[in-house]
Design a protein around this nucleic acid. Structure first.
Length: 802
RNA sequence: GCAGUCGUGGCGGAAUUGGCAUACGCGCUAGACUAAGGAUCUAGUCCGGGUUAAACUGGGUACGGGUUCAAGUCCCGUCGACUGCACCA
């Protein structure tokens, strides 16, 4: 009769034991391993089984490393600034600080149910003044280094959240948070010069053990391109217009130019008769939201009345304006080669502008029905005719440079980071505006600049933060000259704290430094970072930027924060991402009550490959629960039998260790769980057939299981008679010798179709094996054997011809 | 539109370098134990032919081609799903 496995009692017992006897202790001698979860925003709706997944994965990995002799840095904290707490405050009139405190307490309780080895002494909270002091300090340092600057410009504006947004926060023309269409608003903004780091952010991706997908997303986001800047003289004027192009080889085919509506020279070069039309176009373009711009597939534009001179053909070409040219990329003006660019082709067709082919497939001109964008042989290009266009791409800019009208250059899609938010619940930007001294940073020793109490959290919607209404806070004196001055009232974006929090965990109580240098050297950087892929170009790019900056000013001595990154897939239910708004969340609470934490941990892994999205099915947890029961009873039934470690058991045990270890190393955690089930079935089977399972094999299995199902493993380890934790062991090893069998079964195929199997010795000679195979296939071979293939230890294939 | 990932039973999913497709689990079917079972145990479960049951046998990894002794895996094309980017000159 199987003994009942009482998960409630067992889990309660070992939770208490770990509290009194921590298993992860820093003895100062062990090497460190820093395994980090992306810290959560503590929302009011609590954790669901989708959140659990990443935390389980990181804890399993941490405990595995623990058994491999490391001291594990596995902290948790709270990314607690941000809009939801503020919106909640607006609705309910509860201060965001109070709501955040409540949410953190609730989250912490739920996270503790996972039974991860979090070190709560390291806990950080981005809204804690002791923490944001350093978030502000970094800003001041950036300001002093010229990396933070103010600029008035049209920025992305979310009319619903009533705040400006960074480029990275605009997804498909909508607000990343609420989905509202993003519009443009002209505001004076704090910007961070992340573009200064564009090259390093791009180059250093090579150093990282990250998913290729994320690296590619960052590469595309940075968007480095090589090209040339070329000056076009405006006919009948002393002005010239500079364009950026990646195709200088097509310069002979440039038959018109287009400027962005916002280009500074537009009105200057517009002829009087075109003035009205141009102004109207500029006005309309300024009213378009990014969504409208995306929706309008048809090209629009208007002619300025002026002409520029193509520097190679010396012919005049018309200058147009159109909103398909972006003001903030390159020079805001382009030369247009309709024959070799899809967009220019479309524009030229619509407005009847000549199309001149200058690159050809085979040296001959053809009738183009669409732009030819491939490289080829130059035609209609004067002295360059016949040259390979890739060669001309390099040589034409050199020639222009000699004439002083062009040069090779590099461009990036990456823009500087719009860093101001017109909201309350964020870090105040520590700047004082003085009429005489300009923008002056709050002195470092006066940080943190505390977020003041406010009566109304409502965003004003005018582009000013709610802080602007607190006169006693806004009005201050200039730290430099002492005269009356006003504080900056914008706050920082939520990404500010998360850009560096991982540094703070290892020295979270230090009020003298952001992080002590010795500690940083000893415990950083992060070895393994686990979280969702949704931060690929937001948080992960910002954190890399901050890390590089902090290295440059000598705070830390490494320039990449996260050596290895793992993105877990999302959990779906009923075909949709699990979320409270969709009403498809599965709470872990009930499952823990019915099946226990260990079962839920195993099921989180078993549900599918960790890097892929998986569909949640509540019934599936029965399988892992049954497995734990069976294993529990296997150990209890066999522990006192003193069974002998037979050859068969030795082989099984070694293969078990090998399989679990390699699968774990490959992060194939779902197959680790199926592996446990498979070996458990084999052991149960063997226990029935023979006298029982030897002690060493049982103990090995318990240790292997410990990172996955820690409570039941501790219980069984103590049932085996031990008085110390199962985590005081080291990860089991295997002996190669036992992985090999003397005799194995291999498949025999005839013409590639499997027809049967034969038993062979692993050392058996080819001819003997073939002889056996022929014998086995005797009745099945019709015709003559033309070829026989033997892949040692794998397969025999007999090729027969009729 | 461009780029990337992927397509395997009723379902979630396995399958080291190309080498016995469907491991493991869910669900389902039958049986055992039981006063009872939403517990537990045993057996079966890709589709078809065949057999009392087996043996045996044909087909099969979205679809169509190709390379190979051998293809879920590699190559080309088509369809579908998901993700990212979206006029970046």
């Amino acid at each position: 009769m199987p003994k009942p496995y009482n998960h409630k009692e067992i889990e309660k017992k070992w939770r208490k034991y770990w509290e009194e006897n921590p298993v992860n202790v820093n003895d100062g001698k062990k090497p460190k391993y820093y395994c980090l979860d992306m810290f959560p925003y503590p929302s009011g709706s609590g954790l669901h089984v989708g959140h659990w997944r990443g935390y389980v994965i990181s804890d399993v990995w941490s405990r595995y490393k623990l058994l491999n002799g490391y001291y594990i840095i596995h902290p948790m904290g709270w990314d607690a600034f941000g809009l939801p707490a503020e919106n909640y405050a607006i609705q309910k009139g509860i201060h965001p600080r109070i709501a955040t405190e409540q949410n953190v307490a609730a989250f912490k309780k739920q996270i503790n149910d996972i039974a991860a080895i979090y070190d709560w002494d390291m806990e950080v909270n981005t809204t804690d003044p002791g923490f944001y002091k350093w978030t502000q300090w970094i800003f001041v340092k950036m300001f002093k280094e010229g990396l933070a600057y103010e600029k008035e410009m049209p920025i992305n504006w979310c009319p619903s959240c009533k705040t400006g947004l960074a480029n990275e926060e605009v997804v498909n023309g909508g607000c990343e948070r609420c989905g509202s269409p993003v519009t443009k608003k002209n505001l004076k903004q704090w910007m961070l010069r992340i573009t200064k780091y564009a090259d390093r952010l791009l180059e250093d991706l090579n150093k990282l053990d990250w998913p290729e997908k994320v690296k590619k997303m960052q590469t595309d986001w940075i968007g480095k391109s090589y090209g040339a800047e070329i000056d076009f003289a405006v006919e009948g004027s002393d002005k010239s217009i500079r364009v950026y192009t990646t195709r200088p080889d097509t310069l002979y085919g440039a038959t018109f130019m287009v400027l962005a509506p916002e280009h500074e020279l537009v009105l200057e070069i517009t002829t009087p008769d075109r003035k009205e039309a141009v102004e109207e176009y500029i006005y309309k373009a300024s009213m378009k939201s990014s969504v409208d711009r995306l929706a309008d597939k048809e090209k629009t534009g208007v002619f300025t009345g002026s002409y520029a001179i193509n520097p190679l053909t010396k012919k005049p070409i018309p200058i147009w304006i159109s909103d398909y040219v972006l003001a903030d990329y390159g020079t805001g003006a382009i030369m247009c080669v309709p024959a070799h660019d899809d967009r220019d082709f479309e524009f030229a067709k619509k407005f009847g502008i000549p199309i001149v082919q200058v690159i050809s497939r085979d040296g001959k001109e053809e009738k183009l029905t669409e732009a030819y964008t491939q490289p080829g042989i130059m035609i209609n290009s004067g002295e360059w005719n016949g040259m390979d266009s890739e060669k001309a791409k390099k040589e034409i800019p050199d020639m222009l440079e000699k004439q002083g009208i062009g040069k090779k250059t590099v461009n990036y899609k990456l823009r500087d980071w719009v860093f101001s938010r017109q909201r309350y619940w964020g870090e105040p930007i520590p700047i004082v505006h003085c009429e005489h001294c300009g923008a002056v940073p709050v002195p470092e020793e006066e940080l943190p600049l505390l977020l003041p109490e406010v009566e109304k959290y409502q965003p004003t919607g005018t582009g000013e933060s709610p802080l602007a209404n607190i006169h006693e806070w806004v009005n201050t004196t200039c730290p430099q000259c002492g005269r009356p001055a006003k504080r900056e009232t914008n706050t920082m974006p939520q990404w500010a704290g998360s850009s560096w929090y991982f540094l703070r965990y290892v020295d979270n109580k230090n009020d003298k430094e952001l992080v002590n240098k010795e500690k940083a050297k000893k415990y950083l950087p992060v070895d393994m970072y686990i979280g969702g892929v949704e931060h690929a170009v937001l948080h992960l790019l910002y954190a890399r930027f901050y890390t590089k900056f902090l290295k440059d000013i000598g705070v830390i001595d490494f320039d990449e924060p996260f050596i290895r990154l793992f993105n877990q897939g999302m959990i779906y239910k009923d075909g949709a991402k699990m979320s409270k708004s969709k009403g498809n969340v599965v709470s872990p609470d009930e499952l823990i009550n019915d099946y226990g934490c260990d079962s839920l941990r195993l099921y989180e892994l078993f549900v599918g490959p960790p890097e892929l999205d998986s569909e949640w099915d509540d019934r599936g947890i029965d399988g892992v629960y049954r497995f734990i029961n069976r294993f529990y009873n296997l150990v209890l039934d066999n522990k006192d039998k003193d069974a002998e470690a037979t050859e068969e058991l030795l082989k099984l045990r070694n293969r078990f260790v090998y399989d679990i270890t390699t699968r774990l190393e490959n992060f194939s955690l779902n197959t680790v769980v199926s592996g446990f089930m498979e070996y458990n079935n084999k052991l149960i089977d063997m226990a029935k057939r023979t006298g029982g399972i030897d002690r060493k094999t049982l103990e090995t299995a318990i240790i292997l299981l410990a990172p996955f199902a820690p409570h039941v493993s501790e219980e069984l380890w103590s049932q085996m008679g031990h008085t110390t934790s199962v985590f005081s062991n080291t990860w089991p090893t295997y002996e190669e010798a036992y992985l090999k069998d003397d005799e194995i079964e291999i498949a025999v195929q005839v013409n590639g179709k499997t027809k049967g199997t034969i038993m062979i010795g692993t050392e058996e000679a080819k001819e003997e094996v073939l002889e056996k195979a022929r014998k086995a296939m005797a009745g099945k071979i019709t015709g003559t054997i033309v070829k026989e293939i033997y892949v040692p230890g794998k397969i025999v294939n007999i090729v027969v011809k009729q």
